[in-house]
Design a protein around this nucleic acid. Structure first.
Lengths: 262, 262
DNA sequence: GAGTGGTCTAGACCACACC
DNA sequence: GTGTGGTCTAGACCACTCT
């Protein structure tokens, strides 16, 4: 073979080889960052096929094994999905199995894998509002910046169980309307992905037990003061950018919030 | 080098090389199972150093890279912990940072990493009981099998926040006593590890919002009916063996249950 | 310096999907 | 068959820890 390059040779598309810099960062981390960057700028959209490992290896001037490690890391975070024999795809919320990936509420008897009949969504309202200190902090916005507030009800087996209020910056999601939401017929995240190209990659939740307020009591059909789960969520897109803040009030009668601790 | 072996040669301590069997299982999965087996039988106890990657590779007749992949998987499940330059250790709950690894309750303002001041434990009671249908199902016991029921209070910043009732099979944990529990001065899991060699590797929780019953109200110092988190947990040891079932009733006033969704 | 985990490469072959 | 991801090996060198 001609033009054989020694390992870690200088014709490297990425930064310092290991040991070369003051702050050591493995090559595969750099490759991962480069691939993430391509995802951020939209070189490959949700659901699309990304180049093969060998092709990326050629592009970045590293070995296939190194690209592999980078993609392994991305796959572990569900940012991409590998499919043997087919290729590696940008992950998406539109697939039925992943539409409610972040939803941890299940019927008590239900097997965690099968029988997860998805909820039905009823949109209650869409309002323009100004970010208060709380939502500004959680979404990294300026105070009084324009936001959308979406109210909706999640109905499981014909029982309204969750009343959600969802906050999004208007700047990131222009021309939102009740019609579009209703027409989307699926999860919010699936809609944001197809309509705006924004994909949520992870979320943080913090949960409290509260008594139902008047609004929630009305929507959920229970007396004021009924114990509910209050689930606060901040959802992040690529690069840990906070995009959505929501608070769900959830009736846990016959249903529970499931969590795996590892 | 003499005695060089071709790749995938027959002198293989483990089963079929890839492609050899009807149901394909990667070599590193088999190695992982072998290492897990050694953990189950106690060849290396919690906190102990396991043999180096090269040594295990020699023992199992595979390459170091394959052992590495097996250990990677175990490390991802926090079953072992790698420490560069030192070796790989069996994970433990005794280290201060890991003592309350499964505890997801944090003060509201608290940084998730720092400032996680640990709770103080007050043991309330230890009773002998018979497994009812619920605990028998969750712990894979026979009905009426003898169990321990431990009651305790977790105190955060001088405020009692969690009232736990913990169920363990007596067969697995003989000669338990209030004195030993009180003397252990730490988390239950840390105690079970040092006293019985049983290590919890993962847990499943299911959470509801409930009103405080009389017992919980008394211990937590709140009115009956106060909204509380009811956190059910089944904890598993090596090989997905269910070992502990508990129900915690938790006051979420200034504190929340945190969860990362990925 | 010796030993351990961590990274990177190169090449072989297997499993799977699509043509 | 061709191309993709998946597994396995072998060897080199780096980073870290302890002696």
């Amino acid at each position: 073979m001609e033009n054989q390059q020694p390992p870690n040779s200088a014709n490297n598309a990425v930064g310092q080889p290991p040991g070369g810099g003051a702050t050591f960062q493995p090559l595969y981390e750099q490759i991962k960052a480069l691939i993430t960057r391509s995802l951020v700028v939209g070189e490959w959209g949700p659901g699309e096929l990304i180049p093969s490992e060998f092709e990326l290896a050629r592009r970045f001037g590293v070995s296939q094994g190194t690209v592999r490690k980078a993609i392994d890391a991305l796959a572990a975070e569900f940012i991409v999905v590998r499919r043997q024999g087919k290729g590696t795809f940008v992950a998406t919320h539109t697939a039925p199995t992943h539409q409610y990936r972040f939803l941890r509420i299940r019927a008590d008897g239900a097997d965690l894998d099968s029988a997860k009949h998805h909820p039905r969504t009823i949109f209650v309202g869409l309002q323009k509002a100004k970010a208060d200190s709380s939502s500004a902090a959680k979404l990294a916005l300026r105070l009084n910046q324009s936001v959308w507030v979406i109210s909706r009800l999640l109905v499981f087996d014909d029982r309204p169980l969750i009343f959600d209020e969802i906050v999004l910056a208007q700047s990131g999601f222009p021309n939102l309307s009740m019609e579009k939401l209703v027409a989307s017929r699926g999860s919010i995240y699936s809609f944001l992905e197809t309509a705006y190209g924004t994909r949520m990659v992870r979320a943080e939740e913090s949960i409290k037990a509260v008594g139902a307020n008047k609004l929630a009591a009305k929507h959920l059909g229970v007396p004021v003061g009924t114990p509910l789960l209050s689930v606060d969520r901040v959802a992040y897109s690529y690069g840990d950018k906070p995009v959505e803040w929501r608070r769900g009030l959830c009736l846990t009668d016959g249903y529970s919030y499931y969590n795996d601790l590892a």
